[in-house]
């Protein structure tokens, strides 16, 4: 019987873990420290953690994500994820099983505790899978990008690998006093007709994971160039860009449809720009002046 409840608050969603293990044993404090919440509220997602021998579904998975996890469809709209993340000490780890109901409200995580530097897969992908999928059902998305708050609003800097996202994020902090919310994965949430961007625990190489949000003023697609140019994109230009940089629930056509709807709704309220720029402070200053960010 679960004796502990651990609550996480991520992108405004409350995820409650019910477990018989003390929180420190799961590695949750270390991984999600800034995102721990008190345990009184009604959870959006409830996860019962069980220790035991996971038994994977038979047959071929409906979707596999880079050998890290596979999804198996259930008969009633439910899903089972078989998760095989490496352990912190690179020791072989048996797969964990995450069974999720059709509404992504209730899940059961079955995993085997291993000796050594064991951490629950809730810290290594399972919580992210649950949160980002549930967000889609709230007209919201998680996308690749660095979120930076300038004054009362925020922007997301995104772009292909090597486009200068990390460099620009640093320059924005120095040039315009931007506050970084995250350096790799930003959650965009619908909130009473506007869009908020949240920092998430899933940090990139800079390790930035701030549990805070701000109204999203713009999404900026970076490209390296020999001068600084800011060009608005049409919705038709921006949608493929946004989808390509978002974490889509590819295993479920209905969820993909919902995610595409969320992306279209984001584009109705949030402008998207292409910023072709040099790695210099003037680019950040030019964008903030154009967008009225102070």
């Amino acid at each position: 019987m679960p004796t502990h409840r651990i609550d996480l608050s991520i992108a405004g969603l409350r995820l409650a873990l019910e477990t018989e293990a003390p929180p420190a044993d799961l590695g949750v404090d270390e991984r999600y420290g800034a995102f721990l919440a008190d345990g009184d509220g009604e959870p959006d997602i409830r996860v019962v953690c069980r220790f035991g021998e996971p038994v994977a579904p038979e047959g071929k998975p409906d979707y596999t994500a880079e050998d890290i996890w596979s999804m198996y469809a259930g008969a009633d709209g439910s899903w089972t994820a078989v998760i095989t993340y490496p352990s912190p000490d690179d020791a072989p780890r048996p797969p964990a099983l995450l069974s999720i109901d059709a509404k992504w409200r209730n899940a059961v995580l079955t995993e085997k505790r291993s000796p050594g530097l064991w951490q629950s897969v809730i810290t290594a992908g399972a919580a992210e899978l649950l949160i980002r999928t549930r967000l889609v059902l709230h007209d919201s998305l998680v996308m690749h990008g660095a979120a930076l708050q300038v004054g009362d609003a925020a922007v997301i800097l995104t772009g292909h690998s090597g486009a200068g996202k990390s460099t620009q994020a640093m320059l924005w902090q120095e040039a315009v006093g931007a506050r970084p919310l995250c350096d790799d994965r930003a959650a965009i949430r619908a909130d009473a007709g506007r869009r908020l961007v949240y920092g998430t625990p899933w940090a990139g190489t800079a390790g930035i994971a701030v549990n805070a949000c701000a109204p999203l003023a713009a999404i900026i697609v970076l490209e390296q160039h020999t001068e600084n140019e800011l060009t608005p994109l049409t919705a038709a230009e921006a949608l493929p860009m946004l989808l390509a940089r978002s974490f889509l629930p590819y295993w479920d056509a209905a969820l993909v449809g919902a995610a595409m709807g969320a992306a279209l709704n984001i584009l109705q309220g949030v402008p998207v720009y292409r910023l072709r720029c040099l790695p210099e402070a003037a680019a950040a200053e030019m964008v903030c002046a154009r967008l009225g960010l102070r």
Binding site: P240, Y250, V256
Partner: peptide
Amino acid sequence: DGFVVRDVGGSAVIVPTGARVLDLNGLVV
């Protein structure tokens, strides 16, 4: 089968789902 389509500004975007992601790694406009 296995693709989802949405219209936007005179274009349509196709996204693969499930096993089709292996066929089409990306999306089509």
